[in-house]
Design a binder for these strands. Structure first.
Length: 889
DNA sequence: TGTGACCCCTAA
DNA sequence: TGAGTTAGGGGTCACA
């Protein structure tokens, strides 16, 4: 039979490996799962990569490749170890203790590495010995998510005899037939990186309604969306529980989604399905389990069921993300939380936030806390509600453009989609740094090999802020401050001058000396891995920003470049954090502290110079400086609306005021540009970011508000309660109005509003739904559904959110660790204060009343900090009048 | 009434 | 595959 060839581009979702054969005849095959540009789902069996680790002599080394016979012999004898296939080398690689001879030790199978590591530790320095084998595909072939492949077709969906097809797949190194459109086989050299392209991904979102009394699944619904076309199909199931689960599984296999989502599926729906499948299936009955939960693209057999991750059934170890062979599990709750930081995190709240005009969202009035009664009384309504809740996550992902953004992160970080979606920051950094180290002769240290960081390093500098209103402020920012410092001073694990290293600088060598005294080699000696990568990322970002400008008329292209430049920015800013952490493989405690030391040095230098020139710096935080522009004729920054209106209707006096204001603004903008030009240095570019007509702070760091007048017109608020998700709506709205008055220098209106709002709370005339407080709550959910809060809290019951969470649990409502719990304070006179959990589905949150005095005091305290600048204290606001005393002035 | 421990959340 | 960082404000509780 002539072999059918397959050639095309595809996006990699996830990769795992399988071990085949025994001993010398063994091999490791990568199972790469993805979606082709043409629309087919695929599993590519990649041959030819072999697991290996690297070993080098222990301790300091300075004799290069001159290896004593005893060492060479020891390296050769490694082949006698049962896990080892062969030993190659040595080659010279850079390590923190000198350029060392490094042998590559090929291992029979990846799972043998931990054992080999244990038997070698003490005798050898180990490198690259903790890199998951599946990552090798991306590292060794320099792949990202988007690739091009040329392969041999092994199997097609629906094509031909089952047994013969299965046999072909096994001969190609697979484990059995894969649940994909096409199964392919190739050698590693036949896969290559491709430019990013939009992968036509398919997403399945599902939702369950479950009995509170019996934990049983009452009904389920799922919606499948094709992202390329936007078409959707809705399905639902009810009746026999086993057939509900089997129906869901059949749909997953039929529609073959790349991404599985839902709202809070990580902590609710998936654990529930796993529990029910266990209850319904007899122990050891693999076929029953597969029929109910076999959602993966992998072979459907008992071997696959035993896998701990990327299995044919959804699995998770510990509290980490769920994995599923060949697909990506992505919880919309988590994505919405990260992207939106909503005040409350329920599906209905997030939906209302994103789709305020959609009335249909609010009409459905199923009370989830009484699900059994609802199901008994009107199952059709419950099913409709379930269908809607299965569809909403797709709307949310779409509104937030989550999938396209993750795809951009995967492209920039050169990782599979699932790592971009669910992985950690250090995995993204690893992906770039390790592949560059491999190409630069740098040995890759193991995680945890660095000496632990003792205590915290010193961070950014925050300048004291002077309370009050300040007119005409230019805000200057160091551009990408930490990345610029890392590039400018060649800061890297591989460039730090260490007394223990055989390479020591001479008087002729150019060095970068940090304010702390730590020294880094100049670029002439060696360019660090990190500076090299960051420079490359900066260039990529410039390219995409240019691409955005050039594709102004093409929305799709513009969005692509925007997603890409944003992903680059996020990734660049992640470098500092990872390298300042105590555990990362390429770190040393001097790296992070040198970066921040240079940052403080730079910004304090600029502040001192500015003040020396007579320009007051009213505030500064880490990489920003707020400078007062020279005042022209004392023109106030606040421009009352009525003056602007009067000027527009011909008032001469008002027109003159507006003219003066515009002139002052122009002067401030010119001043900002001038400062940026004069204070920029090679490695520290100062940009004129914003111009403020007024800046106000009550005198606390990280809390301020400003009226931006250049380059746009907007109110800029930082830190204040308006920004906080643990505040209540009435306070947020009140403070916003008060800050507006403050910026307009409208003291009287400001005080009048403050008094009115405090009085409203005292009299209890404010709706309780504007007084909801929400705080996140941690707790370990036990197998039986009860929650242990004592792990997370020193004194759990002293925390209001824990008490509210306990109320929810008592009502049978779900709890997941880290979720925000909403409540209203009913009596703050008692200790601890009494709270009532806010129940979204019930009228008025199921709350009877609230403690008006408590809310009045809390509002007065918050806005009192601001009114104080206008002569009124929090106590005055509570009292409703100003206390005059001998000492008041 | 003041203080410190503990916690949440934000700025950067 | 355990894991980005520090600086800082402010709320609540418990206790002197």
């Amino acid at each position: 039979m002539a072999l059918e060839r397959w050639v095309g581009r595809f996006g990699i979702l996830t990769t795992r490996y399988r071990s085949i054969g025994e001993g010398e005849a063994s091999a490791t095959v990568l199972e790469v799962f993805g979606r082709a540009e043409s629309g087919e789902s695929l599993c590519l069996l990649v041959h030819g990569l072999r697991p290996h680790i690297e070993v080098a002599p222990i301790g300091r080394w300075s004799s290069g490749l001159e290896v004593p016979d005893s060492l060479q012999g020891a390296a050769e004898r490694l082949t006698t170890k049962e896990q080892v296939r062969s030993v190659h080398g040595p080659v010279l690689k850079w390590t923190d203790l000198g350029w060392k001879p490094v042998w590559s030790v090929e291992v029979l199978q990846p799972h043998m590495v931990p054992e080999l590591r244990r038997s070698l530790s003490g005798a050898w320095s180990l490198f690259a010995a903790d890199i998951p084998f599946a990552n090798r595909l991306h590292l060794d072939l320099d792949l990202g998510m988007h690739v091009r492949g040329e392969a041999e077709v092994v199997d097609r969906r629906g094509g031909g005899d089952d047994e013969e097809a299965a046999d072909r797949v096994v001969r190609a190194g697979g484990g059995g037939r894969y649940s994909v459109d096409v199964t392919l086989r190739c050698d590693a050299e036949q896969v290559a990186a491709s430019d990013p392209f939009p992968v036509p991904l398919r997403v399945l979102s599902f939702d369950l309604e479950t009995s509170i009394a019996h934990e049983r699944v009452l009904c389920a619904a799922a919606v499948v969306e094709d992202l390329a076309t936007g078409t959707r199909h809705v399905h639902d199931w009810h009746g026999d529980e086993r057939s509900i689960l089997e129906g869901l599984t059949d749909l997953v296999l039929d529609t073959d989604p790349d991404i599985i989502t839902g709202y809070n599926i990580d902590n609710f729906d998936l654990p529930r399905l796993a529990d029910r499948a266990e209850v319904l299936g007899r122990r050891g009955d693999a076929s029953a389990r597969l029929a109910m939960l076999g959602w993966g693209r992998t072979p459907r057999d008992a071997n696959d069921l035993r896998r701990q991750r990327d299995a044919v059934v959804p699995r998770r170890s510990g509290n980490r993300a769920w994995t599923l062979g060949g697909r990506c599990v992505m919880d919309t709750w988590w994505q919405a939380r990260m992207a939106l930081r909503p005040q409350r995190e329920t599906l209905s709240f997030v939906s209302a936030l994103l789709f305020p005009d959609d009335e249909g969202l609010r009409k459905m009035d199923v009370d989830a806390s009484k699900m059994d009664e609802e199901w008994a009384a009107r199952p059709d309504v419950v099913i409709e509600y379930c269908r809607r809740d299965a569809a909403l996550p797709l709307d949310i992902l779409d509104a937030l453009q989550v999938v396209r953004r993750k795809e951009a992160v995967a492209a920039v970080g050169k990782v599979p989609f699932d790592v971009a979606a669910n992985g950690s920051t250090s995995q993204l950094i690893d992906s770039l740094v390790i592949r560059h180290a491999d190409r630069s002769g740098v040995a890759v240290p193991m995680t945890g090999s660095a000496e632990p960081k003792e205590g915290q390093i010193t961070g950014g500098y925050v300048h004291d802020v002077e309370a009050g209103l300040h007119p005409w402020i230019a805000v200057l920012d160091f551009k990408s401050m930490y990345p610029s410092i890392m590039i400018g001073h060649n800061i890297c694990y591989t460039t730090r001058v260490d007394p223990a290293h055989p390479d020591q600088p001479t008087d002729d060598d150019v060095l970068h000396v940090a304010p702390t005294g730590v020294r880094f080699w100049g670029e002439g000696h060696r360019v660090g891995l990190v500076p090299h990568l960051l420079r490359d990322l900066m260039a990529q970002r410039d390219l995409h920003k240019a691409g955005m400008r050039d594709s102004a008329s093409d929305d799709g292209a513009r969005a692509f470049h925007d997603d890409m430049q944003y992903a680059v920015k996020i990734l660049m800013n992640s470098f500092y954090g990872v390298f300042a952490s105590g555990f990362y493989r390429f770190t040393h405690r001097d790296l992070g502290s040198s970066i921040t030391a240079w940052a403080r040095h730079n910004i304090k230098g600029v502040i001192a110079e500015l003040e020396g020139e007579g320009h007051p710096v009213v505030y500064s935080d880490t990489d920003s400086i707020f400078v007062q522009a020279p005042l022209v004729d004392d023109v106030p920054g606040a421009m009352p609306n009525e003056v602007r209106e009067a000027a527009a209707s011909g008032d001469q006096d008002a027109a003159a005021q507006v003219k003066a204001w515009e002139a002052a603004k122009s002067a401030m903008v010119a001043f900002g540009h001038d400062l940026a030009r004069r204070y920029s240095r090679d490695a520290a570019v100062l940009e004129f970011e914003k111009g403020l007509s007024v800046f106000f702070s009550h005198g606390a760091k990280k809390r301020y508000v400003g009226q931006v007048v250049w380059p746009s017109d907007e109110m800029l608020i930082r830190g204040y309660e308006t920004q906080r998700t643990d505040s209540f709506a009435f306070l947020v709205e009140t403070m916003h109005t008060i800050l507006e008055h403050a910026l307009a220098d409208e003291g009287e209106a400001l005080i009048a509003h403050a008094l009115e709002q405090v009085a409203a709370l005292k009299s209890g005339t404010v709706d309780a739904n504007r007084l909801i407080l929400a705080k996140s709550c941690k707790g370990k959910v036990r197998k039986d559904g009860t929650v242990d809060f004592s792990d997370a809290y020193a004194n759990p019951d002293s925390m209001a959110q824990v008490r509210a969470a306990r109320q929810r649990l008592a009502m049978g409502l779900p709890f997941t660790s880290g979720m925000k719990v909403s409540f209203v304070v009913t009596d703050a006179g008692r200790r601890p204060m009494q709270v009532a959990a806010w129940l979204e589905e019930q009228d008025n949150g199921g709350v009877a009343g609230y403690d008006g005095r408590f809310y009045a005091e809390r509002l007065a305290a918050a806005i009192g900090r601001i009114t104080e600048a206008f002569g009124w204290t929090a106590e005055d606001l509570m009292r409703g009048s100003r206390q005059t005393s001998l000492f008041s002035f």
